[in-house]
Lab assay of single mutants.
Amino acid sequence: MDSLVVLVLCLSCLLLLSLWRQSSGRGKLPPGPTPLPVIGNILQIGIKDISKSLTNLSKVYGPVFTLYFGLKPIVVLHGYEAVKEALIDLGEEFSGRGIFPLAERANRGFGIVFSNGKKWKEIRRFSLMTLRNFGMGKRSIEDRVQEEARCLVEELRKTKASPCDPTFILGCAPCNVICSIIFHKRFDYKDQQFLNLMEKLNENIKILSSPWIQICNNFSPIIDYFPGTHNKLLKNVAFMKSYILEKVKEHQESMDMNNPQDFIDCFLMKMEKEKHNQPSEFTIESLENTAVDLFGAGTETTSTTLRYALLLLLKHPEVTAKVQEEIERVIGRNRSPCMQDRSHMPYTDAVVHEVQRYIDLLPTSLPHAVTCDIKFRNYLIPKGTTILISLTSVLHDNKEFPNPEMFDPHHFLDEGGNFKKSKYFMPFSAGKRICVGEALAGMELFLFLTSILQNFNLKSLVDPKNLDTTPVVNGFASVPPFYQLCFIPV
């Protein structure tokens, strides 16, 4: 009986604490739906499609509103004006990374994606500088992407125009580009180590996009005490870190300090320079996690976009025909596509942009946080508050993009057929937390897609009208449904 009384008292205290925290903070924060004790607004949000729920709530509470995930307040920004004001106009104040408990377990605050403060700034600055020195957006990395595009075309030829699921092959190409940047090595598509790495990356994007992960991140005790797919994700990350550590040891034994070959060499050189400046942010643990982040951000996002792009091109054969006509006119058949071609191919450029806009790969991006107490639109948001960005509300804005739910390359073309930029184009987020590999991803999408369409016609196994382009999961990332196609050599 005594234990029951204690339990009831504990629960009562928890409920009172929950109510007090919510009521004391709500006077400062933007308005929002009334949260339930302990669980907050979790029942009012469709976990399978958070973005749709945010759109519905914005119609009631406006472009800036507050939700509670458990006891934790989260300020939501919906629509271009609110997102721009926060991420661009007040970029420094909104540059923090929001709480992501599962990532905390995986990387302990290291790396480039989930770190904060001085650690994040130094690692991000170093990573950007190193990638630029190796030619991100310049010639040397373009050579690597072109080489991988040629290998991709050869792998597709091996399908002999038979029906195939493109998931694996389209994942190999961007993964190999990242391998060449980090390890100075590309792998054969049949290499077992490479296959294991690909498998872990593919599993992780599916797990991260599941409703279960949303629950884990908002009720963090689940991570330590409950079984579930989150444990598989943590094991996959541990596998990748151990693999990278092996490569780091190989580099330490063979590195030429006067001739760095890749990202690992550059990081080890930085560690050597910083060894007298303790404590340094440049450690082996930081290198492991930064490399894992580059793999995660640079492989599955690009391969998922490529997979979605081919599905949309199957669905819209008239678009595919126009792209192939432009390829034939500008590039021809006797040389590989290059980035200089893009400025002469406005329709193809528009298609690449429209694919990214339409699929809305990361509907709410990753959570941000404010780095200080900030007054925002007459609300006071306390330091450390998590900020949720609705990228969907920007990419699918119906004023900027008429009929935003329709796939239409003319969203990025003017009346004369010239490519038209849009400030609403934010597939990689915006501001200080914009994806480090934005330029690389854009290069890969253009070169891989043009190389495929230069060499193959795409054949659907069903009537294009019957192809479903609805994402199968739409949590962290929008993942396309399973499909097969035939690559018919031109």
Results as ranks from 00 to 15, higher is better:
residue 3 S to V: 15
residue 5 V to A: 14
residue 8 V to C: 08
residue 11 L to Q: 01
residue 14 L to K: 02
residue 21 R to C: 09
residue 21 R to W: 08
residue 21 R to N: 10
residue 22 Q to M: 10
residue 23 S to L: 08
residue 24 S to N: 14
residue 28 K to I: 14
residue 33 P to A: 00
residue 34 T to F: 08
residue 37 P to W: 06
residue 38 V to P: 15
residue 39 I to A: 09
residue 39 I to Q: 02
residue 44 Q to A: 09
residue 63 P to K: 08
residue 64 V to F: 03
residue 65 F to L: 04
residue 67 L to M: 08
residue 75 V to M: 04
residue 76 V to P: 00
residue 80 Y to K: 06
residue 83 V to A: 04
residue 84 K to M: 10
residue 85 E to R: 06
residue 106 A to F: 13
residue 107 N to Q: 04
residue 108 R to K: 10
residue 113 V to A: 15
residue 114 F to T: 12
residue 124 R to D: 03
residue 125 R to M: 09
residue 126 F to H: 13
residue 128 L to C: 12
residue 129 M to D: 15
residue 130 T to I: 08
residue 139 R to P: 14
residue 139 R to Y: 11
residue 141 I to K: 02
residue 143 D to G: 09
residue 157 R to Q: 12
residue 158 K to L: 13
residue 163 P to T: 07
residue 164 C to A: 04
residue 165 D to H: 01
residue 169 I to V: 15
residue 172 C to L: 11
residue 173 A to H: 01
residue 176 N to A: 01
residue 177 V to C: 04
residue 187 F to L: 06
residue 189 Y to N: 03
residue 190 K to A: 11
residue 191 D to I: 00
residue 194 F to M: 14
residue 195 L to C: 14
residue 196 N to P: 05
residue 197 L to W: 04
residue 203 E to V: 06
residue 205 I to D: 13
residue 213 I to E: 07
residue 214 Q to K: 11
residue 216 C to V: 09
residue 216 C to A: 14
residue 218 N to T: 11
residue 224 D to T: 07
residue 227 P to C: 08
residue 232 K to C: 11
residue 240 M to E: 02
residue 241 K to E: 09
residue 242 S to K: 14
residue 244 I to M: 11
residue 255 M to P: 14
residue 260 P to N: 08
residue 264 I to D: 05
residue 265 D to G: 12
residue 268 L to Y: 05
residue 271 M to Y: 04
residue 274 E to H: 08
residue 275 K to A: 08
residue 281 E to G: 12
residue 283 T to P: 03
residue 288 E to L: 15
residue 289 N to L: 07
residue 292 V to P: 00
residue 294 L to R: 00
residue 304 T to E: 06
residue 305 T to C: 03
residue 306 L to C: 02
residue 307 R to C: 06
residue 308 Y to F: 14
residue 311 L to R: 00
residue 316 H to M: 05
residue 321 A to P: 03
residue 321 A to L: 11
residue 329 R to F: 12
residue 336 S to L: 12
residue 341 D to L: 05
residue 342 R to W: 04
residue 345 M to S: 01
residue 348 T to A: 07
residue 351 V to M: 06
residue 352 V to K: 00
residue 356 Q to I: 11
residue 359 I to G: 07
residue 361 L to I: 12
residue 366 L to W: 09
residue 367 P to N: 03
residue 370 V to R: 03
residue 378 N to C: 02
residue 385 T to R: 02
residue 394 V to L: 10
residue 395 L to F: 07
residue 398 N to S: 14
residue 413 L to G: 00
residue 415 E to Q: 13
residue 417 G to V: 04
residue 423 K to G: 07
residue 425 F to V: 03
residue 426 M to E: 04
residue 427 P to W: 06
residue 429 S to E: 05
residue 431 G to V: 07
residue 434 I to V: 12
residue 434 I to P: 02
residue 438 E to Y: 07
residue 444 E to W: 03
residue 447 L to T: 05
residue 448 F to R: 00
residue 455 N to V: 07
residue 462 V to P: 04
residue 463 D to L: 09
residue 463 D to C: 06
residue 463 D to F: 02
residue 471 P to G: 07
residue 472 V to E: 14
residue 474 N to P: 05
residue 474 N to Q: 12
residue 475 G to F: 10
residue 477 A to S: 13
residue 480 P to S: 04
residue 481 P to D: 03
residue 481 P to C: 01
residue 488 I to T: 15
